[in-house]
Write a protein that binds this DNA or RNA. Sequence first.
DNA 1: ATGGTTTTTACTGCGTC
DNA 2: GACGCGGTAAAAACCAT
Length: 323
Amino acid sequence: MTDTTTRRYTREREEEDEQTADEDQLVCPECGGNLVSDSERGETVCEECGLVVEEDEIDPGPEWRAFDAKEKDEKSRVGAPTTNMMHDKGLSTNIGWQDKDAYGNALSSRQREKMQRLRTWNERFRTRDSKERNLKQALGEIDRMASALGLPESVRETASVIYRRALDEDLLPGRSIEGVATSSLYAAARQAGTPRSLDEIATVSRVEKDEIARTYRYVVRELNLEIQPADPESYVPRFASDLELTEEVERRARQLLQNAKEKGVHSGKSPVGLAAAAVYAASLLTNEKVTQSEVSEVANISEVTIRNRYHELLEAEDSVPGL
DNA sequence: ATGGTTTTTACTGCGTC
DNA sequence: GACGCGGTAAAAACCAT
């Protein structure tokens, strides 16, 4: 299992590399010649015809003109190159730790105290900043996915609370923002009694189902979220309305499920399957027939599973006298 | 990693329209 | 002949250990 997933991940990465490598070798739109970037001028030009494709690029090189070779060696760009590896691109303030002034002289004790305070506050603001940024992106994602799944406002609220907690407890390092955001939403939807299956979640998320499941388990464990297995009944209204069935069917399906619950038929079985079977069975009992394949379609469950479950449901029902 | 359970896939046969 | 349904065996997925 782990073998296959890691293998897949590495393969994806290779593909990405190939892609970016392809993109690097650009071709002139005019004559088809190779494009070369001239960082001296900040332009990308065609080798063949001299067409300038891009201007005003950022020049990562020295920012002074060099008048001779010696000067070229001495004068380099001030400061570290910017990088996307850091959330602030390495541009935010850093205060040295050495308690020396710009000339290397030791600071007075009063100055040292002052610098210490500045360091503390600078660090506070900076980490708060990065978390804000992180949060903003995650909340955007949660919003997007929630509306794609037709989940109400309250679920988004819950999801963002969960995400904030994950952030506060430092659960993020080593995990993708996307993944944790998705897991938060998944958890929130289940908590709110409007569950969406992992498959449904996965279709709107940017991360793979495997990763969502993994991260979800992790988040639930670390935050001690108490989430009971989804109640099959909570799927019924959605399926019923997707199939344009009446309230009557819906009520009947609920009855079947409640009865099954009392008999303990349902433990260990997938809630979605149970719900789908209940809807199907109810549609038969109320003469509003829908086919198994229709139900399996909206519930994303195999017909076989529906068959198996609905037999069990009816058996449980038969043993109740007077129904 | 492993073993037990559940779900899915694929295929087959039967009855009906 | 296509469709709905039932059943089965084997593969795959899932879960707890």
